[in-house]
C-alpha cells in the first residue's frame, strides 16, 4: 500500500511536531509527550494481537511489568546501560509471553481473555507478594538514567527529561515503523486471515496456534519495551503495571482511536493522555467522563476517531 500524499504529509508534520516539542516545549509538555509515546508503543504492539489477529488479552500488563522490572533488575544488578537495559526488558517480556502464550493460544474468545487475565494477575500477585525481591507494593525504586554509551567512544547523556525525550522519540519512531512493516507483511496478512476465519486459515496451510503464539510474543515484546521506557522515565517499576486495570489501557486506547487501523492506537494514545490531563485539571471525575466517552464510541462510533475521520475524508473525496 502506497501512502497517499496527505498521509505522507501527516507523518512528516507529526514528526516535526514531536521534534519541536522536544526542542521548545516546557517540562510538563515534554513529560506528557513521553507518556503518550510510551503508551502508543504499548498499544501499537497490543493492537497487532487485538486488531490484526482478533485476540482479546487482559494480561498484557504482565509483559509491560516484565519489561519494567527486567530493566530495573538489569540496571540495579548487571549494567546500567539504558539500551542494554531496554534489550533486557524486551527479552524478558518476550520470554514471559512465550511461556504464558504457549498455554493461552489453544483457546480463543472469552476463554483466551480469562486465561490471560488469570496469568496477568498471577504475575501481579507475585510482584506484590515477593516483597524481598520486588519491593512489594512500593515496587523497584531508584533506577538511574545513565548516559547511553557506545563502547566508551561516544556518550549521550539522557539524565534530563529533555535529553531522555529524544531517546523515547527514537524508540517510538522505530517501533511504529516496525509495527507498520509487520502489519503490511505476509505475516500481517496471515494474521488478518486468522482473525477473519481461523478454520479457513488452517485449511490455507497455516498453523494457527503457532501464528497466534508468534503475535502474542511480538505484542508482549512491545509491551516490555514500553514498560522499560516507563521505568527509565519514572525511575521506578510498580506492581500495578501488571494489574488487569493496566492491561485494559491498550484496549481502551485502540478502541478510542480505531481497532483495525495503524493510526488508531496512535490517535487513541494522544487523546487518552490529553483527555485525562484536561479532565483531571477541572474535575476529580476522570473515570466518569472516560466511561461516558467509551459508551459513546461503542454505541455509535465503533471505528473510533480514526474511523470517523476516514469516513469524513471518504465523503469529501468521493461521496461514497
Amino acid at each position: 500500500m502506497k501512502l497517499k500524499s496527505w498521509q505522507m504529509a501527516l507523518v512528516v508534520l507529526s514528526l516535526l511536531a514531536l521534534v519541536g516539542v522536544g526542542l521548545f516545549s516546557g517540562r510538563f509538555m515534554i513529560y506528557l509527550a513521553m507518556r503518550v509515546m510510551i503508551l502508543a508503543i504499548f498499544a501499537l504492539g497490543y493492537n497487532l494481537l487485538l486488531g490484526q489477529t482478533g485476540l482479546l488479552s487482559f494480561g498484557h500488563g504482565a509483559f509491560y511489568a516484565a519489561g519494567a522490572y527486567g530493566l530495573g533488575f538489569f540496571g540495579l544488578h548487571l549494567s546500567s546501560h539504558p539500551l542494554l537495559g531496554l534489550l533486557a526488558a524486551v527479552v524478558l517480556a518476550a520470554v514471559l509471553a512465550l511461556i504464558i502464550g504457549f498455554f493461552c493460544v489453544r483457546h480463543t474468545e472469552i476463554y483466551f481473555a480469562m486465561l490471560t487475565l488469570a496469568f496477568g494477575m498471577m504475575v501481579f500477585s507475585l510482584l506484590w507478594s515477593a516483597r524481598e525481591v520486588t519491593g512489594g507494593d512500593d515496587g523497584l525504586v531508584g533506577i538511574m538514567r545513565d548516559p547511553v554509551s557506545f563502547f566508551g567512544l561516544l556518550e549521550i547523556p539522557i539524565g534530563k527529561d529533555r535529553q531522555y525525550y529524544f531517546l523515547v522519540l527514537a524508540v517510538f519512531v522505530l517501533s511504529a515503523w516496525a509495527v507498520q512493516r509487520i502489519r503490511l507483511s505476509p505475516l500481517g496478512l496471515a494474521l488478518s486471515g486468522i482473525r477473519e476465519n481461523a478454520n479457513r486459515a488452517e485449511f490455507a496451510g497455516l498453523s494457527v496456534k503457532n501464528y497466534r503464539l508468534a503475535v502474542f510474543v511480538i505484542s508482549g515484546a512491545f509491551a516490555g519495551l514500553a514498560g522499560g521506557l516507563e521505568t527509565l522515565l519514572e525511575s521506578n517499576a510498580r506492581p500495578f503495571m501488571a494489574h488487569w486495570g493496566h492491561s485494559a489501557e491498550p484496549i481502551l486506547v485502540s478502541l478510542l482511536g480505531g481497532l483495525q487501523t495503524f493510526a488508531g492506537p496512535l490517535a487513541g494514545s494522544v487523546i487518552f493522555i490529553a483527555m485525562r490531563e484536561m479532565v483531571q485539571r477541572f474535575t476529580e471525575n476522570w473515570m466518569l467522563w472516560f466511561g461516558i466517552v467509551l459508551l459513546v464510541i461503542i454505541m455509535g462510533f465503533r471505528g473510533g476517531v480514526v474511523g470517523v475521520f476516514q469516513r469524513l475524508i471518504g465523503q469529501a473525496g468521493g461521496g461514497r
Binding site: I182, S185, L187, G193, F203, A204, L206
Partner: peptide, 26 residues
C-alpha cells in the same frame, strides 16, 4: 468459508504464501 473482510486477492494470497512458507516473513 472464506476470509470475509479481505479482498479476493488477499484471500488467494494467504494460502499461496502459506504454501511456500512465506507467511512467516514478518
Amino acid at each position: 468459508n472464506i476470509f470475509p473482510e479481505l479482498t479476493v486477492l488477499e484471500n488467494l494470497l494467504i494460502p499461496t504464501l502459506a504454501l511456500s512458507g512465506r507467511t512467516r516473513r514478518f
